[in-house]
């Protein structure tokens, strides 16, 4: 549904996006992560046909972004960094206007508007001027606008920014629903928890270049190494005298924690557990060490300063 190859954008002497390759299928969510100015918004704008690539190509919903920009725009719902609402209009007028822009008939406009306003909890304030809305309400309305024409592709820049936790949850649920309805979705976000919850694929962009891309588990493996496990002790325990089975690599020793990597967890972990039990170690739990997207992101960024991770 979204494909790019060598997608690049140069503004005079500044290379904003450099050789970006993306492939997002229907029913998939790609989270595009990166610092401010990394090239996320420029990439989104190229995928919308708003910016012309300097090099490479992109196809969105089957249309080339350079040759058929209007077809691309008709197939895409874009939530920009700024909500960009017309503050003198009411929510009903606003959604009706965009419904007309996308050539929905009167009945469809009414039905979709009512559904979206109801879903996002804006039905009670639908006839109030948008200028009177809170930031979160505006963000929800902006998201409703991107969904009014039920586009097959959604490009969402910070979809839950400025929202309270309940609203953010609502939006996340809606995005998850949209994935199940066979849409391709790209989310640009700084909210790594949100990305971890929603994304099927994650791409970290750094100085315009895709630093690393893949499924979360793959990224963890590639950036953080093989899975780590940890044994938690109920009281401080000295692991110095332990006979560590071959195939187990100790990563860290703390008073109440032993962290290790295992070449073959199915065979090796029970052996380690057996050794610990034999030495009457006060074992509380043995579990896979928690490794979040944040760990991946921060490590990738730290390493990026020393060189691109391939």
């Amino acid at each position: 549904m979204i494909q790019t190859e060598n997608l690049s954008k140069r503004f005079n002497d500044f290379l904003a996006v450099d050789d970006v390759q993306l492939d997002v299928e229907s029913g998939q969510i790609l989270a595009l992560l990166g610092q401010n100015g990394a090239g996320k918004t420029t990439t989104i704008r190229m995928l919308t046909g708003l910016l012309r690539p300097t090099r490479g190509w992109a196809r969105v919903a089957g249309h080339d972004v350079v040759k058929e920009p209007n077809r691309v725009r008709a197939s895409v719902g874009v939530l920009a960094e700024q909500h960009g609402l017309y503050t003198r209009m009411t929510a009903v007028e606003y959604l009706d206007f965009f419904g007309r822009v996308y050539r929905l008939d009167a009945e469809a406009r009414k039905k979709r508007s009512e559904h979206l306003l109801e879903y996002f909890g804006l039905a009670d304030v639908a006839k109030r001027r948008i200028g009177e809305y809170s930031k979160g309400m505006k963000q929800k309305l902006a998201l409703a606008r991107t969904l009014i024409h039920e586009p097959p592709v959604l490009l969402l820049d910070e979809p839950t920014s400025a929202m309270d936790p309940e609203s953010a949850r609502l939006v996340r649920d809606e995005i998850a629903n949209l994935r199940s309805s066979q849409r391709a979705i790209v989310i640009c976000t700084h909210n790594l928890v949100e990305a971890e919850m929603l994304a099927d694929q994650i791409a970290i962009i750094y100085h315009g270049k895709i630093l690393i891309k893949g499924k979360l588990e793959e990224l963890k493996e590639r950036v953080l190494g093989t899975t780590e496990y940890e044994v938690i002790f109920s009281t401080p325990y000295d692991c110095a005298k332990l006979k560590i089975p071959i195939g187990i690599e100790i990563v860290a020793k703390e008073a109440t924690k032993l962290r290790f990597r295992s070449a073959n967890p199915i065979e090796m972990n029970p052996l380690l557990l057996k050794e610990l039990s034999a030495r009457q170690a006060p074992i509380l739990t043995l579990q896979e060490a928690s490794r979040t997207l944040e760990d991946v992101y921060l490590k990738a960024m730290t390493e990026a300063n020393g060189g691109i991770i391939q």
Binding site: N70, R73, Q82
Partner: peptide, 14 residues
């Protein structure tokens, strides 16, 4: 300046 241009430009208007 008001930030409303991007949604407008993102529409299929010619």
């Amino acid at each position: 300046e008001r930030g409303t241009i991007e949604p407008l430009l993102g529409t299929p208007f010619l």
